[in-house]
Simulated scan of single mutants.
Amino acid sequence: MKKAVVLLSGGLDSSTVVYLAKKEGYEVYAISFDYGQRHDKELNCAKNIAEKAGVKEHIVVTTNMNAWGGSALTDKNIEVPEGKEESKEIPVTYVPARNMIFLSYAASYAEVVGAQDIFIGVSEVDYSGYVDCREEFINAMENAINNGTVCAVEQGRKIKIHAPFLHMTKSQEIKLGKELGVDYGLTWSCYKGEELACGVCDSCMLRLKAFKEAGYEDPVKYAKNNY
């Protein structure tokens, strides 16, 4: 069976990607990151999704990106702001070079387990404008990986980065996930680690809007829901 490394945060996008990769016939090796983020709710969700989806292996990599902060997700002195739908500015929830770091780890993991495919759930349609969620970046990382791994350079086994939701709206993604059997009640998207999802941060707003457009009720409970 062909193998794939899937980046699994425990959020809506990455959880859907796990199920999609399995649907496409891959043996899934899921990789999650404890990178010093402000809460571990997504990591707990990642564990539950991995178990329910029946992945081959699920590992959690620990790295201390909170050592330098620079983001509301890794520095608790920076408040998570309320989302603004029409904003063109990249919010303070952007974690510097996070996907670059994650994909580098995924490439190393893929080379060891013999996977030639990496899946990531980024989109440049419904997103906060993060530069490491754009197609140009994904293509550049794939090129870098294939110039920096023995499997690609010496053995001719190139690694492909799949970003199946890159040009898909979140509502389309949710409809697909429903068809695939994703239990969205096991996922978490809120940037805050409180008992209820806040409903007002960028991630919550994008998620709630998408569920409304898809015609489904979000099974996650929110402190505030303007949709």
Rank of each mutant, 00 (worst) to 15 (best):
Y222L: 01
A21T: 14
Y130R: 07
N226Q: 08
K192F: 03
T169G: 14
K3M: 04
L7Q: 06
E57F: 11
N44A: 13
V5W: 01
E194W: 15
K175F: 10
Y94L: 07
W188C: 03
D75Q: 11
I120T: 14
V182W: 01
A107R: 03
I159T: 14
A115I: 11
A4P: 07
M100F: 10
L103E: 12
F33N: 08
Q155K: 15
R157E: 15
D126N: 14
L186W: 02
P81M: 10
Y184N: 05
G70R: 05
P91G: 12
G121K: 00
A152K: 07
W188Q: 00
P96D: 08
A30T: 01
N64L: 09
Y184L: 10
V6W: 00
I118T: 11
E154V: 13
R98T: 01
Q37K: 04
Y29L: 02
G36R: 06
K52I: 00
V55A: 03
L43T: 06
V60G: 10
Y109A: 03
Y26N: 02
A223Q: 12
A210F: 02
S123L: 05
G148N: 13
E51I: 00
D13K: 00
L12E: 09
S71A: 10
V131R: 14
I138G: 09
M100T: 15
A46T: 00
H39T: 14
P219W: 12
A21H: 03
N225G: 02
V17Y: 02
M100Y: 10
S123V: 05
A210G: 07
H162K: 06
N64G: 12
L103Y: 04
Y184I: 11
S104L: 08
K3T: 13
Y130A: 11
A4T: 14
F137W: 02
S171W: 05
D40I: 02
V5A: 03
E135D: 11
V95R: 01
D117F: 09
A107N: 05
A30Q: 00
G177L: 06
A67H: 08
G148Q: 05
I120Y: 12
G129S: 11
V150P: 00
G83T: 07
R157H: 14
N99P: 03
T16Y: 02
K221F: 05
Y29Q: 02
V122M: 12
S108G: 15
A107W: 09
V125N: 11
Q172D: 15
T74Y: 00
G193N: 03
N44R: 13
V6A: 05
V95L: 06
G25H: 06
V113E: 02
A152W: 04
D40H: 10
Y130N: 12
D13R: 00
C151N: 15
Q172E: 15
K178L: 10
M65I: 13
